[in-house]
Nucleic acid binder design. Sequence first.
DNA 1: ATGAAAGCGCTAACAT
DNA 2: ATGTTAGCGCTTTCAT
Lengths: 335, 335
Amino acid sequence: MIDVAREAGVSAMTVSNVINGRPGVSAETRLRVLEIVSKLGYQVNLAARNLRAGRSGAIGLIVPDIDRPYYAHLAGRLAAGLERRGLHLVVERTGGDAERELEALSYGRLHRYDGVIVSPLRVAAGDLDRLRFDTPVVFIGESPVPTIYDHVMMDNVGGARAATRHLITTGSRRIVIFGGRRELDVDDMPSLRTRGYLEAHTELGVEVDEQLVVEVESFDPGTALRAIKELHAAGIEFDGVFALTDAAAMGVLRALTDLGIAIPHDVQVVGFDNGTETEFLVPRLSSVEPGNDAMAERVLELLERRISAVDHPDDPPEAVTTVVNAQLVLRETTR
Amino acid sequence: MIDVAREAGVSAMTVSNVINGRPGVSAETRLRVLEIVSKLGYQVNLAARNLRAGRSGAIGLIVPDIDRPYYAHLAGRLAAGLERRGLHLVVERTGGDAERELEALSYGRLHRYDGVIVSPLRVAAGDLDRLRFDTPVVFIGESPVPTIYDHVMMDNVGGARAATRHLITTGSRRIVIFGGRRELDVDDMPSLRTRGYLEAHTELGVEVDEQLVVEVESFDPGTALRAIKELHAAGIEFDGVFALTDAAAMGVLRALTDLGIAIPHDVQVVGFDNGTETEFLVPRLSSVEPGNDAMAERVLELLERRISAVDHPDDPPEAVTTVVNAQLVLRETTR
DNA sequence: ATGAAAGCGCTAACAT
DNA sequence: ATGTTAGCGCTTTCAT
């Protein structure tokens, strides 16, 4: 910058003013400076600017894993939205490890960013409660989060209820919930969706057989495939499957096809996520659209609000919990 | 840091030395400083350190889009590998726009990073040739890249040849190449894979009908679905499909199923990418495994080499082009 | 073993 | 309209 200033015969301050489009520079000087800037190929040093401003221009996204459609999609939406706001996204993976999640949320680590978006997976709400930070943070996802933080989540209960209601009203009576929970002691994603599943049964007066609640470690298609085959081998009958994720539903479809069971005639299937793949599976998968795009937009709104409030530490904005509407999308795996 | 120094009764310099584990500090002082550090919850200011060091600790990944399995997977692998090296990944999306790709590769933008990994999609090799930068950069992917840069790519020709050879040796004679190119004037991904397709035909003495080369704008499943249905409607017969991506193959499977064509009995199908979904499609998709993990590892090796060479600008390492082996994985869509 | 000084590149605040 | 000063937090260099 000093080179530019010297070359243009002005002070560094004037160059700074020109570059940042600040007023108080004559048109003539501005032009001359801009010319030298491009001639010398000058570019601001962001480290210096950030040091000076006490900001980094970076928003952190802390997720268990990006190599999964849900997070990848989320990251894509957020990155696009942030770009529009002149910020950029830095992705941090925790691998779904409680310790690494807490680490990433440590005071110092958060300070690298102007704002942080966290999708916690394993950290207990109690641990989150004990955290202390002044960085703007918005939580996202299904895990329980203390209400003192901004939190955007999808309507897990509502989505699951809608899916299950549809299965029941179209005639299914023995509906497997793949990935469900027997004990609803915490408010994590599987429990919430199981709650929706149970509510639908209660509302429509259908009994739930505990055998149909399949608890699993992982939602990958392979696990789902094996689970369904085991269920079948054990002679447990069912005429519907509510899979807690599309990935799991994929495995379910695969298993039913292998077993020669007709979809949706003998068994109906509904997934959750409404991913791109749903349209192209055989048969096309009915799924719950959780409103991911609306979620991303809402997250950015809240984060922006919190970031601009950094300058007024006296009255922080009230913490907001937003639940984004979910919607059932019917395709060929349901009647 | 000054606070820590004062509290510990030493100079900022000593604190700096302790934090960075440099020698020349008595064990006693070290201990005292560390204690104060944790008591005060002190964390280094990265902006300042970077300003001073002229580094940022950030590696840029410039890709068309992260919301796609291929790039998401790549990003995941790279992020994990970089973390191990004490660096972190910053993802930049270009949206597959030639102009934005060039912009991201401008001297100044690159300077934000200690190193950059670029997966160009639309930028012409000629434009890349004209670029001038001193940031370590490794190119990745199928687009043609001047040989003066490090470049890691998959074996597009070999993979496509293997896939096509298999289709032919198992009896297919009229093989659609979905996403292929009629003109092989540039070395982009579709052209390279088409070359493999043609080579296999030549080697095995089978003629290629130009009608079977389906050129498309996009590899999404929807486009593939429509294209196959149009082909069928036009009365063009075929008994095999080589889809240039798994996503496209998904649409192909969907279309064939809709048309009541038996896979692999009447038509065999092979995809390319060997994504997670392949195992769970109905029927399971045979696909070319391009060695993505090996690619990511190789990219990081090359980048590391170039980064450590920054201090010796006199003898830069020679540019290396690595082709990672591809392998055909047979599942149920082939005989 | 420890510290003082200087400066990385930028910009807010205060001159002129 | 433009310039001067000072300092963001750190580390390299050169004392002590």
